[in-house]
């Protein structure tokens, strides 16, 4: 990994600046606090509505119901944001990973042991999301952790999987989400409307695909470049200050 200099010459800002800013921040915090204070101490928000419709949503965990049914449009766009960040990071060309010759044996051993556990745990989180805290994002994050662990061990994706196949897995969650969401339009429903009896299964399907895509995307973000492209020699200056 390329290292950047963390310590730079930062002149301490003058007392005046710090004081001004301090006062302003205090004012900001104070006014925010006052605003929050002035809110009613009890507010139902939408919890009643959420609870009322939860049977129709196909899942019993209210958060998952909001995420993947009531406000699934937000979640769809959010998968888009993640993919977009990946597009962005890849478009930067990436800074190439220097192959380190030394692999920490403890890390190596741990990763061999931990990665399967992580994958299993990720599956559990995905499944439990239907009725208890958990769900695609949590599961995806754990999956990504497994990927990070592998990368730290200098693991590399085989070349034949790093092209179209990788890209396909990355977009799978989003595409499946759109496909299922739009599929019922042809059965006279609106976009993202699922028949209540099928909702549970469909949500699990979407979440499974999303978990995979989220996990791989996050790991790919960690890698920081398109693995199918050989490191760009122009960008990889190797300057080390």
């Amino acid at each position: 990994m390329r290292k950047i200099k963390l310590k730079i010459l930062e002149k301490k800002p003058s007392l005046f600046t710090r004081l001004t800013l301090g006062i302003l921040m205090f004012l900001l915090a104070a006014s925010l606090a006052y605003a929050v204070w002035s809110l009613p101490t009890q507010a139902l928000g939408l919890s009643a509505e959420v609870a009322k419709n939860v049977e129709m949503s196909g899942v019993s965990n209210p958060v998952t119901a909001v995420l993947l049914n009531y406000r699934s449009y937000d979640t769809l766009l959010e998968l888009g944001v993640l993919l977009l960040a990946l597009f962005g990071v890849w478009s930067l060309g990436g800074v190439s990973a220097n192959k380190s010759s030394f692999v920490n044996p403890i890390l190596d051993f741990l990763s061999r042991f931990l990665v399967p556990v992580f994958i299993l745990f990720s599956g559990y989180l995905l499944w439990v999301g239907g009725f208890a805290p958990g769900g695609a994002f949590q599961a995806g994050a754990v999956l990504a952790a497994a990927g990070v662990l592998l990368f730290l061990n200098d693991w590399q994706l085989e070349r034949k999987y790093s092209g179209f196949s990788l890209r396909f897995v990355l977009v799978l969650g989003l595409v499946l989400f759109v496909a299922i969401g739009f599929g019922f339009v042809f059965l006279d429903r609106v976009f993202l409307e699922y028949p209540p009896q099928l909702a549970g299964g469909l949500i699990l399907l979407i979440e499974a695909a999303a978990t995979l895509s989220i996990g791989i995307s996050l790991a790919a973000l960690f890698l920081g470049r398109d693995p199918s492209v050989k490191s760009d020699s122009k960008i990889d200056t190797g300057v080390h200050k």
Binding site: E49, N53, N69, S72, Y73, D74, V190, F191, L192, E193
Partner: peptide, 13 residues
Amino acid sequence: CYELGAWNAPLGI
């Protein structure tokens, strides 16, 4: 007007 997922406001979008 289009109610996504057939959920109307305030619950849906």
